[in-house]
Amino acid sequence: MVTADSNKWGMVVDVDRCTGCQGCVVACQSENNIPINLEEHFNQRRAIQWIRIERYWEGEYPDVKARFIPVMCQHCGNAPCEPVCPVYATYHNNEGMNVQVYNRCIGTRFCANGCPYHVRFFNFWEPEWPESLKNQLNPDVTVRSRGIMEKCSFCVQRIQRSTRESERDNEVLEDGDRGLNPACVNACATNALTFGNFNDPDSKVSKMKEEAMKEGGRGYRLMENLGTDTNVVYLKKVDESVEVTHGH
């Protein structure tokens, strides 16, 4: 059960399920009014993807592996991006989320420098769509103008809408509700992404986290040694042919 005053939203990412298909990437762009990444945006290294698939090579032909891992804002409990913002445009709210306030942002980009996960993206241009494609834009999400920083919000608009609607209808918002889940989680065909409330001990994410963080479990956090206290827990990739149990 989800109650408004005790939520700590978070995600569990099972790297062993992820196939690198990029379905989450496109779903995110559709939900969050992310500007179309044109060819020149890629060439200038200014493409925007709130969630991305990192691909790592190991070895070379014939003994070669490609590893995929989805990376989105980790919603750090101790976020390096927050203290560097001179205008408090990014802060940690009491639901465990790292929030980006577009109307406060003045575009210093200090936060992007501060973020060790490189999940913050800057709008170098005014976003443009052909007139007819604007019909698709999600009215629940602000279109960010030029000079604004943006990043994964855990689809906060969905959280707001689904909590409000369940209050309105006097219904219980259940764990794993598809209206509550971020767009990437619903899109993921392999169920590599799970979203929920870490403060609810019965939620799926809490149980997965508990299991994963046990001795011998698969849980880890990205760059845990930085002490960022992230709200995204990763489950290790399994590869029987590899002997290490730690990244190398």
Partner: peptide, 16 residues
Amino acid sequence: PRDEHHHIIEITSGDG
């Protein structure tokens, strides 16, 4: 960077 200080993609040989 992938070294002992930057745990990005971690691999385990067993299922846990």
